[in-house]
């Protein structure tokens, strides 16, 4: 099981902040495709290059094999405090 987190405007767009995904996706691409299948607008927003991704709280770059990862966060541009 994987925990998916959305921040900022992504949370508003999706209408949720956090959810469990089962079975765990094997790759980031698979996770994106599954979310996009349910919600096309969210899928497009998640694919935007300005959205950064953290896998188990480490910034991930490019295509990622999730393996045993338990937490995947999608982060729109950070605003600062």
């Amino acid at each position: 099981m994987s925990r998916v987190l959305l921040f900022g405007r992504l949370r508003d767009l999706a209408g949720w902040r956090e959810r469990q995904i089962e079975p765990s996706p094997r790759t980031l691409a698979e996770l994106r495709a599954r979310l996009a299948h349910e919600d096309k607008a969210l899928g497009e927003a998640l694919a935007h290059p300005s959205v950064r991704i953290a896998v188990d709280q480490q910034i991930a770059v490019g295509e990622v094999v999730l393996g045993e990862a338990s937490e995947i966060a999608f982060m729109p541009p950070m605003s600062g405090g």
Partner: peptide, 27 residues
């Protein structure tokens, strides 16, 4: 750093609803 690069997401709530804010160029 805190005003431009720290991992926060900021939303301004007003009478007309809410809007997400991104850093200004000056930040």
């Amino acid at each position: 750093y805190l005003k431009s690069r720290a991992p926060f997401w900021k939303k301004a709530h007003g009478a007309d609803g809410g809007r997400w804010i991104e850093p200004r160029l000056e930040d």
